[in-house]
Design a protein around this nucleic acid. Structure first.
Lengths: 198, 198
DNA sequence: GATACATAGTGAAGCACTTCACTATGCACT
DNA sequence: AGTGCATAGTGAAGTGCTTCACTATGTATC
């Protein structure tokens, strides 16, 4: 059993943040060092610009940290980020399997690359290739029992950690965060709302 | 002049998002496909868990997209992510220079690595090495005029893009986003507030 | 059956970064 | 002067990923 207990504190160890946290009058956190730097810049920013830059900078730092965290986490479980994504994708696919091409497409990875990822995962016994008898051009990648166990353990642990990371935020604040992120995604991708009021 | 105008739409081109955006009763965006997947999972999540996971998943996707964006952006300007960070760091340092060791420390990069980054930047004429006559063990990396110009152009463009990406969010929402991100950072790093009410 | 297309796999090269083990120089302290 | 520490640089290997150009197999179309 490879899933020895791993504690969050263990992995957050070398997550560093260079700014200086402070609380503003509204009770919200801000980075006082960064705000100072913005204020003393040659070209001072407008109010709107300041808000946007502060928010997006905080977001970028958060992004970097979560990425580091996930990277180390995957590594501790013998996975790279790409292989982890493959596993997660397969875990949420019907029958835990997908044709390689479709997998590549969903993961936004070149076909050349998916071969290598699956090769590696197959070597590790987490995934197996299955031929499609109906269309013999197709090869499915399917989670093995071991792969399923691995991903289940990681999901449980991931859930636990996410709760710890989200500590201190009300459910209201979490909803706001979700909304803001999705709005940013909408702006970045050009994709827009297709459904309403569910 | 290398800074030919580059449009946001040009680079956001291949930013994809696999989910399905929808608006909930509170007027907030959510990913209906993802919510569906959570609901039909074998082990259903509690309300709190659902909120946390939805928010952090949206955050991760945002993180991935911004990263892609920055990567491509840096590349278009002939930089890697690491070299871009070096340049930004130097730009905000006094006299646009820093000892290599300190630079490595602030960027959380090994000393071995900083050598290569500076080598490359020096080859490109964006940074130069300066010996410290006072302590001849020290070498400073200093932004050249060309480097300064490059980074100034990128800053202007970065500001412009950030405003576009933040479109549709009120300043209130941006402040909430900043707060939430910093709270997450606090939880991930263990660093806590040192100043108050500024 | 010939042709065109789709799917998967291969080999080789390159990039950015990491780690490890090592050298060379210079400061500082005794 | 000698010892120890700090700073920077080097070489070599490895990882994860990307791209390009190519082969092999199988399906579909005419």
């Amino acid at each position: 059993m490879k899933h020895f207990t791993m504690h969050f504190s263990e992995i957050k160890g070398d997550c560093r943040f260079n700014g200086t946290l402070a609380t503003d009058r509204a009770g919200r956190l801000y980075d006082s060092r960064f705000r100072q730097a913005i204020r003393s810049a040659r070209r001072p920013l407008s109010e709107r610009e300041t808000r946007a830059v502060e928010a997006l900078t905080a977001l970028r730092i958060t992004a970097r940290l979560t990425r580091q965290l996930m990277d180390r986490w995957a590594e501790k479980h013998g996975l790279s980020e790409g292989r982890l994504h493959v596993l997660f994708r397969l875990a949420s696919a019907p029958d835990h399997q997908l044709p390689l091409g479709e997998l590549a497409d969903q993961l936004e990875v070149t076909p050349r690359n998916i071969t290598g990822l699956i090769d590696h995962l197959e070597r590790d016994g987490l995934v197996e290739r299955i031929d499609d008898p109906a269309d013999r051009r197709l090869t499915y990648a399917r989670l093995t029992a071991a792969g399923g166990r691995r991903i289940d353990g990681m999901r449980a642990q991931g859930l636990e950690w996410q709760l710890k990371i989200a500590a201190g935020l009300s459910t209201e604040e979490l909803d706001q965060l979700r909304h803001a992120c999705l709005q940013l995604i909408e702006n970045m991708t050009g994709k827009s709302v297709t459904e309403k009021s569910a």
